[in-house]
Amino acid sequence: MTFDDLRVFVAVCRAGSLSAVARELDCTQSAVSQRVKRLEREAGMSLLERQPRGVVPTHAGRVLLDAASNSIDGLDQALRRLTDLANGDSGSVRVTTGGTTVRHFMSEAIVAFRRRYPKVSLEFRTETSSRNCFDALTSGNLDLAWVTIRGEALPRIEQRPVVHLPWVLAVKADDPLATRSRISTADLGGISLIRLPQNSTSGAHLHTALTELGVRSSSDTSVADWDTALLLAELGLGHAVVPVMPGWRMPGQGAGDGPGEGSLRLVPIPDLPPLPVGWAVRRWDALSPLARAFADVVARSCGGAEWAP
C-alpha cells in the first residue's frame, strides 16, 4: 500500500469513475484499476462496487476513504504551506537581539527583506544582553539570535560570525586625546572607562583583551549599552572603548551618519582584537528558507559573507 495508491483510490471514489481519473492522471484505465486492486489485495476485501454508471465505495471502501481523505487533504495542505514558505508567500521570521542592534545592524536589511517578502511576518524579541539572547534562543520559539560571538562552543547552539568590529576610544571633541590618530592600549591604563555590566558578552571580550595585554583600567560609570556609553562620552562624563558599528564615520573618512563628527571623536585602538558579532541558531540545517534568507540579507548589509547552506 503506497501513498499514490491511496491518492488514486480517493480520486476514484470522489469521481465515481476509473476512466475519469485515468484521464486526469494521463494514464490508462488499467493502471488506475491495478492500483485499486493492489489495495483490495492488502485489505483482503472489495473496496469498490462496479455499477453500470461507474463505481461506488463498499462499506470497507468508505472506511478506508474516510481515513485516507483526511490524511491526504492534511498532507496536501501541509505541502502547499511548505511551498508558500519557500516562496515567501507566508510564514514568519523570529529574531532575538539587543535593544539597539536592529538600528545598527538590520535597518537596511529589514527594508530589503520586506520588499522581497512583503507577506512574511518579522518578529523581534528584545533582550538586554547576548547571554539573554542565547537563553531565549534555546528556550523559546525563535529562529535567529544576533549576538556577540562567544569564544567557546555552546551546547545546542551554532554560532556564525558575520562581521568583526574594530574598537575605538570615544571622547569629547575638546578632549586632549581627540586629536590623536590612534590610541595604544598602554594609553588606556590611566583612563577611567565607562563600562558595560559584567553579564555583557562584548564587555567581557573587552575585559579579556585588556587583561591579556596587561592593561588595568578603572571605571566609575556603568551603562547598559554602547549607545549610552557614547552619549556619556559626548557629554564629557568619561571615555568609552566601543566597537565601531556599521555606518559610523572613522577619522580620515568622509562624512557619514553616526558618531565621528560634531562634539564626539572616535579614535582607533588597533592593538585590540576586533569584536566578532553575528548569528546564533539552534541548528543551521534546520532553519526555514525564510530565516536563512533574512540572515543572508543582514550579512550582506553589514558587509559580511552569506551563510552557505
Rank of each mutant, 00 (worst) to 15 (best):
V163D: 05
M106L: 07
P274Y: 04
A60Q: 06
V56M: 10
R195G: 01
P118T: 03
A233S: 13
S288E: 01
G254N: 03
D285Q: 13
W248K: 10
L287K: 05
F124S: 00
D84F: 09
D89G: 12
A86P: 06
A299M: 00
L235V: 01
S184F: 04
W226Q: 13
T185N: 08
R62W: 11
W167H: 12
M245A: 15
R131D: 12
L64N: 08
G190D: 12
V10I: 08
T2H: 03
V32A: 01
L25P: 07
R282P: 01
A136V: 06
D135P: 06
V93P: 03
G254W: 02
S200C: 08
C13A: 14
G140R: 09
D89T: 08
P273G: 04
I183V: 12
T101L: 13
G151F: 07
T228E: 15
L188Q: 00
A295D: 06
D225C: 10
A170P: 02
V8K: 00
V93A: 04
Y117T: 03
Q29D: 12
A60K: 06
V102C: 04
N70G: 15
L237I: 03
L64A: 05
D227S: 11
R156S: 14
G236I: 07
Y117N: 02
T208F: 10
S202N: 07
R81M: 09
T100S: 15
G247S: 02
S17D: 08
V10C: 05
D257N: 14
L290F: 07
Q29C: 08
A295F: 04
L48F: 06
P270E: 04
G140Q: 00
L272E: 07
P57H: 01
R156Q: 14
I110H: 07
G151R: 08
S184C: 07
T83Q: 15
